[in-house]
């Protein structure tokens, strides 16, 4: 009984994680300028990582792979937002202005081409 419940919970978490990955990927391609694309990419960095790894941890039970999964998840959750922050900081310092998405995709708002 408890196995079935754990299976269902982990499948739901994995499906939600896959949906988050897809939404983030489509957003990273389709959104109009750089800062909005950072928003979409950070969705896949944190939410999808959390959901997919939690789902796999529920599948593998209490064992060594669970500890490895936990270590990878912790590392990704620590470094993903740090890398995104460094990226946004570098873009801002190089003079790329956050605009409202009016100047679309031309790189017209400055920055290194």
């Amino acid at each position: 009984m408890i196995d079935v419940v754990l299976d269902v919970i982990s499948w739901v978490l994995l499906a939600l994680g896959g949906a988050c990955v897809l939404i983030g990927g489509i957003g990273g391609l389709r959104l109009p300028n750089f800062y909005t694309r950072i928003h979409a990419a950070s969705l896949t960095d944190t939410m999808a990582t959390l959901l997919i790894f939690t789902g796999m941890m529920l599948q593998s039970g209490f064992s060594l792979p669970t500890m490895k999964l936990f270590a990878i998840m912790l590392f990704l959750l620590l470094t993903g937002p740090t890398a995104t922050y460094a990226l946004a900081n570098a873009a801002l310092l190089s003079g790329m202005k956050p605009d409202s998405g009016v100047e679309r995709d031309r790189g017209a708002s400055g920055g290194v081409q």
Binding site: G24, G25, G28, F34, R37, I38, A41, T44, D45, T49, L76, G80, A83, T84, L87, A90, A91, S94, M96, D105, R106, G107, G111, V112, Q113
Partner: peptide
């Protein structure tokens, strides 16, 4: 269009 877009995409690819 900018180099930061490319770095962001490579970061997403690696994750």
């Amino acid at each position: 269009p900018t180099v930061y877009d490319r770095v962001l995409a490579v970061n997403v690819f690696g994750t």
